[in-house]
């Protein structure tokens, strides 16, 4: 990836050229402590990725340097945080920090003063971000982006995917759209994995219960495995219930009789 050269390096040392010829340089890097999220958070701390990417000097901006948008991703789960960060990096050059700690979330974010915050809409700590909307000056004040957004379809997609984004008031929507598109795609992916994982777990649980129920029947009635399974299935069909539910009821009843 083009940006990795500048990761964690000092601005002056990062000046290179891209194949497209645009000049780039490193982002002014904060102090080293930025890369962690505080001493209380061992393990995760080292894993927090501060992606310091490159800046493109956009010709349209009369040679002025444009800082890459700084993004805070609030996510406790390391794997998911990585997926989101990777997705964002594919979408462009951003300055990304992950915050995993929920205690004092508003303060942690305010200290970083990012252009944009991404948070799972399913995270109850999202409400703590509302404190940021009470910041004193309008330009520091983040707004939940959906409502201001002229792009209703994008807004809807973000909400459906469970992405909440807070942006600094006045940030142009064309700068936000690629970020949100990437975040939405990743959130969908994360969501799908969550559902699949839950389904796998449930299937495993159900199989265990059915095996136990079969065992109970086999012992109690002196029958073989196939016959025990047949009995369970017949009971399920007769009562219009799921096989796993019948098995569960049998296991529970047997436990009570012990």
């Amino acid at each position: 990836m083009s940006g990795t050269a500048a990761l964690g390096t000092h601005p002056e040392t990062a000046a290179t050229h891209r194949t497209d010829g645009a000049a780039k340089t490193g982002v002014p890097v904060g102090d080293a402590a930025e890369s962690g999220i505080g001493p209380t958070h061992s393990g995760w701390t080292a894993a927090v990725r501060v992606a310091r990417l490159v800046v493109l000097a956009h010709p349209a901006l009369e040679g002025r340097m444009v800082k890459p948008l700084s993004i805070v991703v609030v996510e406790k789960d390391r794997e998911r945080a990585m997926m989101i960060v990777d997705g964002l990096q594919e979408a462009g050059d951003f300055d990304i920090v992950v915050i995993a700690e929920e205690a004092g979330l508003a303060r942690r974010i305010a200290q970083r003063n990012p252009d944009l915050v991404l948070i799972d809409a399913g995270n109850p700590s999202r409400d703590a971000l509302e404190d940021l909307t009470l910041a004193s000056t309008p330009m520091e004040r983040p707004v939940a982006m959906f409502v201001d957004q002229s792009d209703a379809a994008l807004t809807r997609a973000a909400i459906e995917a469970g992405v909440s984004a807070y942006v600094v008031d006045g940030l142009r929507s064309e700068r936000i759209k690629p970020i949100l598109d990437a975040a939405i795609a990743r959130f969908h992916m994360v969501q799908k994995m969550r559902v699949e994982l839950a389904e796998t777990r449930r299937a495993l649980e159900e199989r265990k219960v059915i095996d136990r129920a079969k065992g109970i029947l086999m012992r109690a009635r002196g029958i073989g495995e196939d016959e025990a399974y047949g009995l369970l299935r017949k009971a399920a069909m007769d009562q219009g219930k799921k096989l796993a539910d019948i098995a569960q009821a049998l296991v529970m009843a047997t436990d009570l009789l012990k």
Partner: peptide
């Protein structure tokens, strides 16, 4: 909804 901000979004959208 896990949060009031998300509920507000859901209602707004």
């Amino acid at each position: 909804s896990p949060s009031w901000a998300s509920l507000r979004d859901m209602l707004a959208a």
